Amino acid sequence: MNKAPTAADHPADQREEASARPRNRRGQGLLLREEIIRAATALIVRTGSDQAVTLRSVAREVGIAAPSIYAHFPDRDAIVEAVVVEAITQLQQTIGAAVAAHDDPVEALLAGCAAYVDFGVREPARYRVLFGWARPKPEAPADDASGRQGLDAFQMLVDSVDACVRAGRSSSTDPFGDAVALWTALHGQVTLRADLPGFPWPPTDTVEQMARRLGRINP
């Protein structure tokens, strides 16, 4: 006969974590899930790496027992992916708002590029985890939520270059290829500024220069 688990069956630190935080009321499971994501994000921001995210560290940050996480995430990789998806969503919304604020396609392209770099500079740890975390290989392409949203964010850049072409403001004959070149340059701008803060970087208006040159914007 199976013996019902008792308090003695759980490590003392897990019992302390469980007692440090009151249980959510019925229907508040989504709230706990959001708290877990916020806790993981805070750990990444403080340490600059997703390696700080473990079930135990996240549980300690939230004030719950580590096993409580399994009701919302199967493992630590799923938690990190949720952080990545949230960051990509915010980045996409930030770029979208910047683009939508301009009717002129060139100004919209420049604003979107500036918003991308601004996000990366303001959120270096969250930006780094977008590209640096060791994501497990999905069982099927449809399982890769962060990858899908990343492609959606990139498509906004392709659409912006294409809008300039259709308006006769860009000489690009390959909006996708030119968008890849522009994204590569923007990514380099963000990562190099984060990794080499002591370098005498020129003003951030170099973003506009890159966008005009690589987007093949007509003079």
Rank of each mutant, 00 (worst) to 15 (best):
S172V: 04
G112P: 05
P105V: 00
D174M: 06
P105Y: 08
V80W: 01
R166E: 09
P200V: 03
R122E: 09
T184N: 14
A142D: 12
F73L: 04
D103M: 10
V117Y: 06
I95F: 10
L196C: 13
A78K: 00
A145D: 14
V106R: 05
R193Q: 05
M156W: 08
S171M: 11
L192S: 15
D77G: 04
A142I: 13
P197R: 02
L110P: 08
A163D: 05
S172W: 08
G147Q: 04
W201E: 06
D118M: 08
E139S: 14
P197K: 01
I95G: 08
T204V: 14
A78M: 00
A108E: 03
L109V: 02
L91S: 06
P203N: 11
F176A: 14
V190K: 04
S172D: 03
G177A: 02
T173R: 15
F199M: 12
A98I: 02
G112M: 04
A111Y: 03
R166I: 05
L196W: 11
D159V: 03
P200K: 05
I95L: 12
P175M: 03
W183R: 15
E208G: 15
Q149V: 15
F199C: 10
V180E: 06
D75W: 01
G120K: 01
V165W: 10
I88D: 11
A108H: 03
V207E: 05
S146C: 08
Q90N: 09
R193I: 02
A179W: 05
Q155H: 13
A115N: 01
F73K: 03
V121T: 11
G120I: 03
T204H: 12
V83N: 02
S171K: 11
S171C: 11
V83P: 00
A115V: 00
I88F: 14
I79F: 02
S171T: 14
K137W: 13
V190S: 03
E139M: 13
E208C: 12
A98G: 00
D159S: 07
E107P: 02
T94M: 10
R122N: 10
F73P: 01
A98R: 00
D118Q: 11
A78R: 00
D195N: 11
D103V: 12
S146I: 02
A153N: 13
A181M: 13
A101G: 01
A179K: 02
W183A: 15
S172E: 05
A194G: 12
G96W: 08
I95V: 15
A194R: 10
L130H: 06
A181N: 15
G112N: 01
F73W: 04
A185E: 11
L192I: 12
R135E: 02
L192T: 12
H72D: 09
Q189V: 13
I88Y: 14
L151P: 09
E139A: 14
A142V: 15
A167Q: 08
E123K: 11
G112K: 04
D118W: 09
S170K: 01
G112F: 01
G188R: 03
A194V: 13
P124H: 07
A145L: 15
D104Y: 07
D195F: 11
A108W: 07
D178E: 07
G177V: 00
L182M: 07
D103Y: 10
Q93N: 14
L182C: 03
D178T: 03
